[in-house]
Design a protein around this nucleic acid. Structure first.
Lengths: 238, 238
DNA sequence: ACCTGAACACCGTTCAAGT
DNA sequence: ACCTGAACACCGTTCAAGT
């Protein structure tokens, strides 16, 4: 027998990123270590460094892949910028909804890759095409913040990483924990929060945690309304 | 000679948290390891575990200390809720401004400690005292999001951790990197972003990065305006 | 050009023991 | 009650070598 060809197809960046995404989807972001990822690919850890610069680059690449999958803004008349923004952000939300690790990964990125800049540019472009000044567009982007990625900051509920007590429970691995707003709070200590929790529970019987979809849409409505008023009033930072 | 009393004062939780904060202030959040912290305290790593449950608990404690230092809402007539919210959030901002690591630490917390709940309760309480429904107050808190801690999400600028290229440079250790919005971007690739960067540069000659204080105040204005409209209109989620 | 093997310099945390 | 010593089970990443 002569030298067998390697039965494993040769690695490339895309395959590494795809495997990392699958690993994060299945076992959570913390499971994505260079060593575990290499093992899943049937390769030695150092082999990965041919295709990603380091672990940060790996995470950047995972996020980039996600962003590339986000739908582009629809072609609409320029004055329908509200619909265009809503569609773009909702489209982004649908992509990240399939990957529980995405929110945390995005929040920790510091590198503004081409994919990141492209997404920001497309959204800024909607405002500018609608006649917004670049000045207003700039500050409006800051105002919208991470909602350009399709998520609101989680306030009452936990984030992707499970609460400490549940972390060792294999049944909740990689799953988004849903907890009540105020499970056992004393109304004397936290009157407002307990009132909010009671009201929310009454409105959505049986539900655990907040309705993040509702919160996202609610925030978007308020923001787009306020943004529209500024534009109509000819707002300027000067 | 009999047994010398330990020249090092006996450790307690507060001293551990104080040392951890000093370490983060001086060398950044990544420098806060159980081992380094122990070394600074002249103690073996395991000694820390008598005073904090684990590293997450240490970070929770560091954030709690910060929150405890934040000024309480001023006592104002209930209808001056805008001023009360503004004062509270601006007060929070002043505290976290002194600690560059705070933003990242807060964003990664999943435990809602008493200090966290207390802060949220005080802010919710301002709305409720002003006659906001608990329903509206709930969603308004989601809308404001992390701005209750005195910061906006950073969009164009990097976060507390330095960019990779600068990370090895001891001169920028623990310092907030300030970079231009679009240092070397091709206008053909990113027309909107380049336009924004050019406009921002023209308005603030010599400035690097965005004016985060301005962005915080801008967002607060828009949010409080929109929130006030909802309240006046008798908004309800039903 | 791509992958391997062995090592380095770290982590957080356990356990059992000391005072 | 508080701290120590030694060890365990990991990390990301280097270097030099192999094919």
């Amino acid at each position: 027998m002569s030298t067998d060809p390697p039965r494993r197809p040769r690695l490339n960046r895309k395959a590494v990123l795809r495997a990392a995404t699958a690993l994060a989807d299945a076992e959570g972001l913390d499971a994505v270590t260079m060593r575990t990822l290499a093992e899943r690919l049937g390769v030695v850890p150092m082999a990965l460094y041919k295709h990603v610069a380091d672990k940060e680059d790996l995470l950047d690449g995972m996020v980039d892949t996600l962003i590339d999958d986000m739908p582009r803004p629809p072609t609409l008349p320029a004055d329908q910028w509200r619909s265009a923004i809503r569609a773009t952000l909702t489209g982004a939300r649908e992509i990240i909804a399939e990957h529980t690790w995405a929110r945390r990964a995005i929040e920790t990125r510091t590198e503004r890759t081409g994919a990141v800049l492209g997404h920001m540019d497309r959204i800024s472009g909607i405002f500018i095409a609608a006649g917004f000044s670049t000045d207003l567009t700039h500050h409006v982007m800051h105002l919208i913040g991470n909602r350009i990625w399709g998520f609101s900051p989680e306030l009452f509920t936990g984030s992707e990483s499970a609460p400490r007590s549940a972390r060792r429970d294999p049944y909740v691995e990689g799953r988004r924990p849903r907890r009540r707003i105020a499970p056992d709070l004393n109304p004397t200590d936290y009157p407002a929060i307990v009132a909010i929790a009671a009201d929310a529970a009454a409105r959505r019987p049986g539900a655990t945690g907040c309705d993040e979809d509702f919160e996202f849409a609610f925030a978007l409505d308020v923001l787009l309304d306020g943004i529209g008023r500024l534009h109509d009033a000819g707002w300027s930072s000067a």
